[in-house]
Design a protein around this nucleic acid. Sequence first.
DNA 1: TTGTAAGCGTTATCAT
DNA 2: ATGATAACGCTTACAA
Lengths: 341, 341
Amino acid sequence: MEQFKTQKRKRKGRVTMTTVGRMAGVSQVTVSRALSEPDKVSPETLKRIQDTIEQTGFVPNAIAGALASQRSNLVTALVPSLTNIVYSSFMKTFNDSMKEANYQILLSETGFNPADEQEAIAAHLSRRPDAVLLTGIHHSSQTRRILLGADIPVVEVWDITDSPIDMCVGFSHVEAGRSVADYVHNKGYETAATVTANDERAHRRRDAFTSRLKSIGASPVIAHDCVGPASIESGRNALSDLVDRQGFRGGVVFCSSDVLAHGVIIEAQARKIRMPDQMAIIGFGDQEFAAHLEPALTTVRVDRERLGEEAAEAILARMRDEPIARTVIDIGFQLMVRASA
Amino acid sequence: MEQFKTQKRKRKGRVTMTTVGRMAGVSQVTVSRALSEPDKVSPETLKRIQDTIEQTGFVPNAIAGALASQRSNLVTALVPSLTNIVYSSFMKTFNDSMKEANYQILLSETGFNPADEQEAIAAHLSRRPDAVLLTGIHHSSQTRRILLGADIPVVEVWDITDSPIDMCVGFSHVEAGRSVADYVHNKGYETAATVTANDERAHRRRDAFTSRLKSIGASPVIAHDCVGPASIESGRNALSDLVDRQGFRGGVVFCSSDVLAHGVIIEAQARKIRMPDQMAIIGFGDQEFAAHLEPALTTVRVDRERLGEEAAEAILARMRDEPIARTVIDIGFQLMVRASA
DNA sequence: TTGTAAGCGTTATCAT
DNA sequence: ATGATAACGCTTACAA
């Protein structure tokens, strides 16, 4: 049979509001309205439009929508690592809260150096997000500048400062390190060691811990700094190093993360070191497993779920043009004393 | 008339290519070219434009660019969970590979039910991504339809099928379950139990494991199914249940993830059960810690890093309009035999 | 209730 | 090498 192309197709026959409208016998605007303000469209028209949409599988073009309305319904976020549960746990609640308000999250990993961050932020801003979440408070001045120029809510998390770019939700790493030092001192541990991942904030906790102990007059702290990221393996290696090469003979070990502490515990067990009397272990983060290790891990709890929610709430409040009560929210931390120290 | 136009809708002084051009004494188009094809612009003009960009902190509007060019440089991905290392590890390499090709990733969590997925996919497609990654191979027919209608590369990962929507990178969960069963049988373990998280693919591995053992003529497998997601805690509870309530007296335990297996090991240790002779443990996933537990965990390794890379490569090849060698890539799995079983 | 028209800030296509 | 002009597919006045 002869087949005629009855339709002249521009572009692979993409379905737009215009085509939907044509099929439903209305104008493009009416289709737009049917989607965003259904009340303002007569029931019959609405029905016809909805049927056509269903039938064609039409999906509105949010890009065009964003360009026209100057709102992208996009929020971008930068985290140091996509695979680290510490960050993904607050991103999860942040994501959930924002999704509820109909925002999508564009997530990227920040490299370690500020130049990378700047590039990443520019890439994000080119998508014209309605808000931005950043992990950490140290940013280049150029970064701050273009962020301020974007004129959108910005929330910095997982650390705290008096002078945020816009808003800030986090806690003091220095205070956390000091608190652990005080606990250790009050418990009467004679000697202390640190096991620290390669992470700027972990370093700050370690330094605060060490200098607090020093100022209290305790004996010098032995330090093992891991080369890479935290892992069970590097925790085990760390204890081996402390014991075999640095002459650590017992006392307390403050680890920069629960994962490292876990590795230390496994290694100590393998070496038949009794915990906590011969060796006490303190972690950081209070991850899910911390309470369920043997011995249960003493650690510092940060409410990451709440952090994500507060960050979302801060952004949403600003978007609603609400008066902002506090632009800096300290969610604090809590020492979870368990069997290991 | 023209006087009115000028007064229309005055917005905040956003910097656009037009304003940059005005400042640099060229037209908007030339600014666009300076950014995308610098060679086609005279060195002096280029310099002037670049200076102006630097000075104004201009960030190109990718939304407008995407609308005009019909390419978003966006790829969207759907994973079951943002916090599960299993998924984040292949998303990391996928992300890295795509970023290298100048794509950004929009990531979302899929709920458990297919209706959620459909909604999520529609939301993603509205951003007009240049490609889509999905976790899993089971999708509603409407989902398949709008995905096909989008006419972009689609890759389904972490499972395998002969009839992918477009392309597929993964492995057979059924084969994995069977392999473990064969190993268990050859090792001569008399009794077996399973500890399984609430996850469709984990169920398939469990069922394949159980029915293979049955067909070989082994004694029935005792099963503990966790309510929530995998965790150390649920692993410990699982073993308690198996031993205290289901009368499991030893043999081998096949866990649906290394995390659960870890919990089982901790509980077994706490109960002074000797491993592997009294009780052998097998995990799934070969996560970083598996090799470093005591006893080191026997588990099934899936090369998640490679999976992410292959998925990216598949998408990129299709975008380059290269002939596609295989639309289904089986990356397989490998039994890592260690001390625990 | 529905439609018309003017953007939104780019890229693509031709001219010059 | 540079520019004018038309898309791109929507939203937002404003008109009917």
